[in-house]
Design a protein around this nucleic acid. Structure first.
Lengths: 187, 187
DNA sequence: GTCTATAGAGTGATAGAC
DNA sequence: GTCTATCACTCTATAGAC
């Protein structure tokens, strides 16, 4: 018997990718075991609450990553540098449009009902962190919130359209366009 | 036994709403029968191919609606009037942000693999029809395609964010913003 | 009676939980 | 692996239109 030892953090990352590809309902336990090579025993050891706990932990993990890598820098560091970094991280995190936003996908169907608070908080914090950075960088008060919302909407819409058209280039050029739009308000 | 008579068009509309709320995988046949009040007998009478045929017919039905109500007017009628009408239809079709885009939601998970051609054609035609109308209305050639893509991206992103935040107002103000942006290029 | 559309129990397969 | 619930789907009986 070949036995592979996994860390819980590996399990979270592996299962997350399955949810991203198949959606919450579409990801059956057998597909998860098949694609991750994790046994049912391992999965229920890491996630005693089953599928729902997996999704909750994955979302918390994604949220923590965004908080550390994007939201806190936007809130606390040099705003222009943090905003520039946000665009780079967004492009690499979503694999230039090849990877969907799990939290955005969960927001669209009834999965939302199980995780509504986490979904809402993630998007709210992204918009507020970006709006705050824009303000500190000199964007007029009236525009900052609107521009931040527009940026997050654009990212989500571009991910949807890139998948729908099977054309990841949509994502890259949308990021460029959104980035330029923010920069024009910084003067 | 109480027997209710349905039309197939009613069945399509009722089942579509269940898919919109639960997603393709999330919509089990028992949920579909419970929510639509259509018996399995009726459903398999209308859709001998089961769930997959339901989804295919629903998407064809949505596509036909958009072609008649939005794409053909954009392609053939007065471009400014057709564009104005597009914004009104978009707002009413998506119930001012309370209703998600079924085709956009299908694009995000593995459901896409079953219906990729229909999904791609729907979005491609929307963008091309809008870009054509913008061109005829005086938008510079270089901008028209990009602006049309931006509009469709904005609509999809706003639907996602409105659901995620539980705040439908996001959708309305995004439509206003997108509409104004197109209008500035018309001179 | 004939025929079509509907109701809903019943089927084997497979889900998620453990 | 084992368990039960639920899955997509089938099938028989029959209601109602003619």
């Amino acid at each position: 018997m070949v036995r592979t030892v996994f860390e819980k953090s590996d399990a979270i990352a592996l299962v997350a990718e399955v949810f991203r590809e198949l959606g919450y309902e579409g990801a059956s336990m057998s597909e998860i075991t098949a694609r991750t090579k994790l046994s049912k025993g391992s999965l229920y050891h890491f996630f005693p609450g089953g599928k729902e706990e997996m999704a909750a932990e994955i979302m918390a993990n994604i949220d923590a990553w965004f908080v550390t890598e994007m939201f806190k820098p936007l809130e606390e560091e040099d705003p222009r540098a943090a905003i520039a970094r946000m665009w780079e991280m967004t492009d690499s995190y979503f694999h230039s449009g090849r990877r969907v936003c799990l939290i955005g996908a969960f927001a669209l169907d009834e999965t939302r009902d199980h995780f509504s608070a986490a979904i809402r908080d993630y998007f709210r914090r992204w918009i507020e962190a970006l709006a705050g950075a824009l303000l500190r960088a000199g964007t007029p008060d009236t525009d900052a919130k609107m521009l931040a919302e527009e940026a997050v909407i654009g990212i989500q819409g571009a991910l949807t359209l890139a998948r729908a058209l099977g054309d990841e280039a949509v994502f890259g050029r949308t990021l460029v366009r959104l980035k330029l739009r923010l920069e024009t308000t910084l003067g």
